[in-house]
């Protein structure tokens, strides 16, 4: 069992996390969708984004700020039936 940090810091540390396609990421500073994609080396073209299950149009990527606890989904085109 891992050592728990002190009780004051733990909730704060947990609350700084976001998830991108179910992978946890530490949110060190407030980020826009565009900044997040850039930081994670995602291409900005050919992807679409949803935050907390809601579609975020590309026109809002610069203005939409991500908050701790947000679940971000980034999708790309693929073959399908």
């Amino acid at each position: 069992m891992s050592q728990r940090p002190n009780a004051i810091n733990l909730p704060e540390r947990e609350s700084q996390e976001i998830e991108v396609n179910h992978v946890p990421h530490r949110l060190t500073t407030p980020l826009s969708v565009t900044s997040l994609l850039t930081q994670l080396a995602h291409p900005l073209d050919g992807v679409a984004v949803a935050v907390n299950g809601a579609f975020v149009p590309k026109s809002q990527w610069c203005t939409q700020t991500l908050n701790p606890g947000d679940q971000i989904e980034v999708v790309a085109p693929m073959q399908g039936g």
């Binding site: 991108v20 992978v23 994670l40 080396a41 999708v75 790309a76 085109p77 693929m78």
Partner: peptide
């Protein structure tokens, strides 16, 4: 066509 999740 379809959509798939990108991995960081």
């Amino acid at each position: 066509v379809s959509l798939r999740r990108q991995t960081a």
